[in-house]
């Protein structure tokens, strides 16, 4: 299992992207799937950093781990920020996606892109930690 621990700061997004793309490359994910996985993890990591840590004036780390069993690549992010379940967070309504720019509520777009960009997304609250799990099936 590969692991990466980074501080809960926006500057960590680059390291997270490098970690995800390296793991995707190891298991042979194609360019599109790698991009979507990176986008999903980037969006959720951004949420954890901005809303889980910064907005609640907390500090903490993001712990990433990657596992594979030949049929799928699974990457998990764990953090000790306030509980946040993206699946039950405000969902973007289909009508919202059709609105012109001047009427846009931008909140929720990142979570929307994250959840529908991967083959499976799970959220678990384990003791005092959030665990967001992203799964991509291998062809």
């Amino acid at each position: 299992m590969e692991q990466l621990t980074v501080p809960g700061e926006l500057a960590s997004l680059k390291l997270i992207a490098e970690f995800v793309l390296a793991e995707a490359s190891k298991v042979g994910l194609d360019k599109k799937a790698s991009y979507r996985l990176r986008l999903a993890i980037d969006e959720i990591a951004t949420n954890i950093i901005l809303y889980g840590f910064h907005e609640s004036a907390q500090k903490g780390d993001l712990h990433l781990s990657a596992t594979t069993d030949n049929s799928k690549l699974e990457i998990a992010i764990e953090d000790s920020a306030i509980p946040f379940d993206p699946i039950n967070a405000r969902q973007v309504e289909a009508t919202e996606l059709e609105r012109p720019l001047e009427e846009r509520q931008v909140g929720g777009l990142g979570v929307y892109l994250a959840i529908q960009g991967v083959d499976q997304f799970r959220y678990e609250r384990v003791s005092d930690r959030n665990r967001n799990i992203f799964v991509m099936n291998l062809a």
């Binding site: 969006e43 951004t46 720019l101 846009r104 990142g110």
Partner: peptide, 20 residues
């Protein structure tokens, strides 16, 4: 090469700043 939703937010900002 890559754009997250943060980029979409800037497009909304641009529209609000510059007008429709």
């Amino acid at each position: 090469d890559y754009m997250a939703s943060a980029g979409l937010r800037v497009l909304v900002f641009a529209n609000q700043k510059l007008g429709t």
